[in-house]
């Protein structure tokens, strides 16, 4: 919510504002679906929020990158949601029922997210030279972080074996990542934008694109809390949570008074 919320107030048209707001709202909803899934396993939301705040819980590293221009709203929807969808579609077949049902719902709602992102990219890429420059810059900044959303290479993935054995994860990180690259490159070509990877080449024998090695040092550094916005994202969440503690207390006190007297 935060990286996109950063541009919500500055969305450049009524349509863009409504679309972005509806999208962020969906993301909040998806957070809630997944918190609910975790609650079925016996952990409360309050505990999960606490884990987030004391950094025991991790969230996707991509959200620790800043959104610097409006084109980033395009890149985030197109690339970040695009990558997420490839992952989530695969997770619809996960073995845990509540998780699978949550994912089915999420995939249904996500389908507009990637499109709205791409729509912004189209507007920017075919707009004024300044807009096109912003679009290219956003692609440059989000390309590699989006690819790293799929997680470490299969050989280095700590949880891979257990998650695959238990059928929680259904396809490997590298497999999903390759699928995403192969789908996305032609979309970038349509926009007339250049993927920031000199080694990106179509291998005619496999129909897949090869790519340069990723900067995994940066990836792990961001995962471990040293990305450009980790501290800001967390502080923002904490502030909203603690500044509003009095509201939750009031709601609890009111419910205590009303619901016990009516029952």
């Amino acid at each position: 919510m935060q990286p996109e919320g950063n541009w919500l107030l500055r969305a450049p048209s009524l349509r863009a504002k409504q679309v972005l707001l509806a999208k962020i709202q969906d993301e909040a909803g998806h957070g809630l679906y997944l918190y609910s899934v975790a609650e079925t396993l016996g952990i409360s939301r309050a505990e999960m929020v606490e884990q987030l705040h004391n950094q025991e819980a991790k969230y996707s590293s991509i959200f620790n990158y800043p959104t610097l221009t409006w084109a980033d709203m395009g890149a985030v929807g197109w690339l970040v949601d695009g990558a997420a969808i490839v992952n989530q579609v695969s997770l619809q077949r996960t073995s845990y029922g509540p998780y699978s049902r949550g994912m089915v719902r999420i995939c249904k709602e996500e389908s507009f997210h990637q499109r709205q992102g791409y729509e912004i990219m189209v507007q920017m890429a075919f707009g004024t030279p300044e807009q096109k420059e912003m679009a290219q810059d956003a692609l440059n900044r989000f390309w590699e972080p989006a690819l790293m959303m799929f997680g470490p290479h299969d050989a280095d993935s700590v949880h891979k074996n257990q998650s695959m054995d238990w059928k929680i994860k259904r396809e490997s990180n590298d497999h999903l990542r390759q699928r995403f690259i192969d789908r996305t490159v032609p979309q970038a070509e349509y926009l007339g934008l250049t993927i920031p990877d000199v080694n990106l080449k179509l291998d005619p024998s496999t129909g897949s694109y090869t790519h340069s090695p990723f900067n995994w040092d940066e990836f792990w550094n961001v995962v471990n809390g040293n990305g450009p916005c980790n501290q800001e994202r967390l502080d923002h969440h904490k502030k909203a949570h603690y500044d509003n503690a009095w509201v939750r207390e009031a709601a609890a006190a009111y419910a205590e008074k009303v619901e016990t007297s009516v029952a």
Partner: peptide
Amino acid sequence: LAEMCSKAPFLEEDIALSN
């Protein structure tokens, strides 16, 4: 109200204000 996005007392209320 859009300014309240990601600043509500809890997620459900965030969605309500966005709506």
